[in-house]
Design a protein around this nucleic acid. Structure first.
Lengths: 199, 199
DNA sequence: CGCGACGTTGATTTGCCTCAACGATTGTGG
DNA sequence: CCACAATCGTTGAGGCAAATCAACGTCGCG
């Protein structure tokens, strides 16, 4: 239900019960099954989704038909095709459930209305986006500055939970490498560990 | 002066003259010379900077001593070490002027105060950050999905102005490739153009 | 003028990809 | 309950994109 959303909101701002009720009256819960899409390319992306349960990915397909995961998100976070949401143009990304789950749907018009009616919401998103920007900056820096093995280690260090819940080939895709190569990286780094224990 | 800032604000929200005056009374103009730093690693990053004139870069130095540009910004945009600004930990990035320029300094405490006093400011940052997130998403996608030559072409297509004002080796760094390789890419793609004209 | 900053070029090396084949595990329908 | 297909991970051989290293050309500036 809405507990996770309310908790997330209260983490950043203070809201009255009336405001919370208003908000909840405008949004919608949606249950999704594993592998179901919330959005596919070509559709109009009128909504942002707050994940109250489950794990999701956003991904594009490039000119060569290869998938590239742009985002991995779990409970307490948001997911969407932000470019399409912003520009109003058709989506270029898939948003897919990796497990059975549940999201709170914020259509764009509703979101803007709510932000006008509950000014604090602007603050919520300001702070939330600030955090997201920070994560993106880190991801960019790691991508352009590291070799793949370091990048992978930093990733599982920062998001150990994703390591557990997401298949390895998706993590490879998120990191921008092939699943085969990630497999080789893991082999090498586990060998190192063993050697470390021996000596 | 503050014209560029006011224009940026009015682009997203409506403010009264009183609000604008309040805001201006709290912030500070700062002139910087080419190659001067607004921030260096180890310092505390208490401020965000609105660029009213000039061109800036943010960059880190990795374990091997190589520079990596995380951000390039010009008039009308903001720049900071957002991670440090958020976490309160010492900066890890340099913020450097690429030309003589001028910024409006928003110390963190002032910014939070102002956002409380002028609620609309939250909306300004919400929308601005949304746009920044969108750009970051694009950059990430291009980095993980493209070969360097395509990535470069997309970059100059999106930011032709930067191409003019920023030395080539910095663009290479921003793209995550070496200056030597960018030089080779340019040679190849200009050769293609010439051949295209011949036929 | 001479020096530093920037771009170019070529030879060599390396990180990562591609392709192909092969386990292991899961799940699903007969 | 088993057979078979999907799904996911692993391994190896070979190839390509990009890095590294070193040298050189050019321009602007003190």
């Amino acid at each position: 239900m809405y507990e996770a959303l309310v908790e997330s909101l209260k983490n950043y701002i203070e809201l009255t019960d009336d405001e919370i009720n208003l908000l909840i009256s405008k949004v919608e819960l949606k249950k999704v099954r594993k592998k179901q899409w919330l959005l596919t390319p070509g559709e109009y992306s009128h909504a942002k989704y707050f994940i109250s349960k489950g794990c999701f990915r956003a991904y594009c397909i490039d000119d060569n038909g290869h998938e590239h995961i742009t985002k991995l998100s779990m409970e307490g976070w948001w997911i969407s095709d932000i470019q399409s949401f912003l520009s109003g143009e058709p989506a270029t990304q898939y948003v897919e459930a990796l497990e059975d789950g549940e999201v709170v749907v914020f259509p764009k018009t509703v979101l803007e209305e709510l932000c006008d009616q509950i000014p604090q919401l602007n603050k919520y998103f300001r702070l939330l986006y600030q955090l997201a920007l920070c994560n993106n900056q880190q991801r960019i820096f790691r991508t352009i500055s590291n070799t793949a093995d370091k990048h992978y280690l930093q990733f599982i260090d920062q998001f150990p939970a994703l390591e557990q819940r997401v298949p390895q080939y998706m993590i490879a895709s998120y990191l921008g490498i092939t699943p085969e190569f990630l497999s080789k990286i893991k082999k090498k780094s586990s060998k190192k560990k063993v050697e470390g224990l021996k000596s």
